[in-house]
Nucleic acid binder design. Structure first.
Lengths: 249, 249
DNA sequence: CGTGAGTTTGATACCCCTCAATAAAGGTGG
DNA sequence: CCACCTTTATTGAGGGGTATCAAACTCACG
């Protein structure tokens, strides 16, 4: 279906869980590096099982007892919370090599749903806890990954703080670009697995405003759409300037 | 000057760094628990030094080389980023027992400034790294703290996603209340060390809108101000309902 | 090929930002 | 201790941008 998820080279299936992040202290030009050693991945593989979720499937719900964390192999996942009135707020989009299943007092903090078709490692919490207890190196790598996720969450908050819809969407595309770049994928074209409503729920505007902003960007010649899910940033100069200004002029 | 910071009992000075968080897997009724053992605190004290910052002093700047992380003993700190046009976006307010100094590729992610008069432990990164390498238990506690901060960042993003100014301010007060409650402090009255501009920069609205929202809450009899920094939530029923609705009706 | 969800486009109302002025608070020096 | 000054907070009026509602349209899927 979607052969674009990286089944290439460095994380072929069977090697066990894969976790990547931007470096904490080394400088790596924005690229992500594999945190786990082959040995660690093998040891985690022992306690993990591979699970699949069809597009739109719920993975877990906010408030449920947290039995396991997940490590995405391929596909995209959204974590979200539903408001009393039924509206949805998306906390994060997660992709291959990400960890999933933030816990508070034994319960999941958010709900999680497959955007794509998703395959992931499911790692039971008790086994993971035991593994961590006698694997200091693994613990350190988890720290690195959590720092990475914390930075992403702060970037998201930064995005949400922006005033204009245009600026939010521009920054959203920038984040997608940085993500694909960090993975080593091509940046010639951006792929958006999620729909307009999800984008709106992530950047804090209505789906209609998402559409309008995309149209404005296209009309100004800053981006070009191949279809609804594929964009190319045409004029990086003007695009990045727009992304750094607060107002969405 | 402000004797309200908890110099009470469980973290008297001289005991060394203190780090608290809501539990990951146990349920603790929203309370925070001390993560570090007395031995760990003592070992950290060896590599840490106590530093003081007057109100308004910059602690470090975004992009600077990250030599150290900080552990707040008393006072309040804001972490923020400055936009090209000079506007400021606040990523987080940090208080006693919090860690400070998120790093990416060897550089600080945000700038940090003392809101209050602040005292903190300054822990050099190399020494901390060495300490972590042969202290698996400490590593685990850092993981717990990072999960805590990640949850807080997501709550902040959730707040920023809300539409109306009134709802944002209401939720901001709720978070303050939860924070004071988690610390075991009295919740009879909330204390806001930061000014209106900082609140606006945190919740994503203008300082004027902060004022107006406070006024509306007061006029509706939901809260009562003793002065500009002290609020009491009078009608919890209506208040919490307002906080959970998306629109700020 | 038909159906339905997702997306785009349009018109209107409302909320918040901006700018501006007043008021209050905190800090300083006499 | 009080007067003065600076900073911060409040209040008001007007314009702009986005949410909302509604309808046409496209696309994916059965």
């Amino acid at each position: 279906m979607n052969g674009r998820q990286s089944d290439d080279g460095n994380d072929r299936p069977g090697q066990g869980p894969s976790v990547t992040a931007r470096a904490l202290w080394e400088s790596s030009a924005g690229k992500r590096t594999q945190l786990l050693s082959d040995a660690e991945r093998a040891r985690l593989a022992v306690i993990a099982s591979v699970v699949r979720f069809k597009a739109g499937t719920k993975i877990f719900g906010a408030g449920e007892r947290a039995d396991a964390v997940y490590n995405i192999i391929s596909g995209a996942v959204k974590t979200y919370r539903t408001l009393p009135d039924g509206a949805e707020r998306i906390a994060a989009f997660l992709f291959a090599d990400d960890l999933l299943g933030l816990v508070e007092e034994g319960k999941y903090m958010n709900s999680a749903r497959a955007v794509n078709s998703v395959t992931a490692y499911r790692i039971p919490v008790p086994a993971l806890e035991a593994r961590l207890k006698n694997d200091p190196s693994l613990e350190f790598h988890v720290i690195c990954k959590l720092c990475h996720e914390l930075r992403e969450a702060q970037r998201h908050a930064f995005l949400l703080g922006r005033r204009g819809a245009l600026g939010k969407i521009t920054m959203f595309l920038q984040m997608l670009e940085q993500y694909q770049s960090a993975r080593g994928d091509s940046v010639a074209e951006l792929y958006m697995p999620m729909n307009r409503s999800d984008i709106g729920a992530y950047v804090g505007i209505s789906p209609e405003a998402v559409s309008r902003s995309f149209r404005i960007l296209a009309d100004r010649g800053l981006v070009a759409f191949r279809d609804r899910r594929h964009v190319k940033i045409v004029a990086h100069a003007g695009f990045d300037k727009l992304a750094s200004e607060d107002n969405g002029a």
